[in-house]
């Protein structure tokens, strides 16, 4: 409970800064309008106007909150105007891509730890893959896959997987290598096989690393799915909301979609965190 006051203080400070930013950035439009109508406005009038514009440069927090509320609770979840509908479109691609990426990441890490050739050859490519801007490669993936008749969920999932396998590879290689020389020597004194060393030592030792890299991967997967929705002509999904929002200058719509994406990412990270707590507790590892 002692934490409540500092947390609320920080939130209040952010909201206050946001409001100040809204007033400052939206006031230009208000002043231009007034100048065109040959009016002079008092400070209070300016502030009031910046809080309630239809297309503000920076929507005020209460506008975004209202947009978010309308999007989530204001319509049937099947409606194309529902943020729940769009979030689900994005989330389903994210989850599929995340599963592919995490699985691939773990497999690659197993190979890298056990095979020197893979250690030397795979890691540079994995790193190189992440230096390519995802915005550049996403349209190519969509187009190439569309040309062979694969559209919809799967191409987006591929982009998600492309972004999310990397933190898992890096984290799991570190995790599988976390047992120290003494623990490996101990297993050598038992003449343990490589498979036994993996299942009895490396795998359980990697668990804390596993969940940490999954959290990073989940956020990356969501970014991948959203980016994957941008070049498709924006039909559905949070990416589509962002894109059409920017087409029509609907900044409230953009910000609502951004917050929805943040909520979805936070939910995924939260679920992984809960799984981590339960798993490590059952394994007897003190947090």
């Amino acid at each position: 409970m002692r934490l409540v006051v500092p947390i609320l203080t920080v939130v209040a400070a952010i909201v206050a800064l946001w409001y100040a930013g809204s007033v400052w950035m939206n006031s230009q439009w208000t002043l231009d309008q007034a100048a065109r109508n040959k009016q002079t406005l008092s400070f209070t009038q300016i502030v009031r106007d910046t809080m309630d514009q239809k297309r503000p440069v920076l929507p005020a927090p209460h506008q975004v909150a209202e947009g978010l509320w309308q999007g989530v609770f204001g319509q049937a979840v099947t409606s194309k105007r529902s943020l729940v509908y769009h979030a689900w479109i994005t989330l389903s691609a994210t989850l599929l891509g995340f599963a592919i990426g995490a699985g691939l990441g773990v497999l690659l890490a197993v190979g890298i730890v056990h095979n020197r050739a893979m250690d030397m050859s795979v890691m540079p490519w994995a790193i190189a893959s992440q230096t390519i801007p995802i915005l550049a490669i996403a349209p190519m993936i969509i187009v190439v896959m569309a040309s062979i008749g694969v559209t919809g969920l799967f191409p987006k999932a591929v982009i998600s997987a492309y972004l999310s396998f990397f933190p898992v590879v890096v984290g799991m290689v570190k995790g599988f290598r976390s047992p120290d020389a003494m623990q490996l020597d101990l297993l050598r004194t038992y003449s343990a096989s490589r498979a036994q060393t993996f299942w009895k030592l490396r795998f359980p030792a990697s668990m804390p690393y596993f969940f940490t890299s999954l959290k990073i991967a989940a956020a990356a997967a969501l970014v991948g799915a959203i980016v994957g929705e941008l070049p498709t002509g924006a039909v559905a999904g949070l990416g589509a909301r962002l894109l059409s929002g920017s087409y029509y200058g609907q900044t409230v719509m953009i910000w609502s979609a951004l917050f929805m994406a943040a909520i979805v990412a936070a939910a995924m990270v939260g679920v992984i965190g809960a799984l981590q707590a339960v798993t490590l507790k059952r394994m007897g590892m003190r947090q």
Partner: peptide
């Protein structure tokens, strides 16, 4: 299996009883 080896640190697995 001629010998058992005890290291400087106990090196028990934290995830095992």
């Amino acid at each position: 299996r001629a010998y058992g080896y005890v290291f400087q640190a106990a090196g028990l697995y934290p995830w095992r009883t």
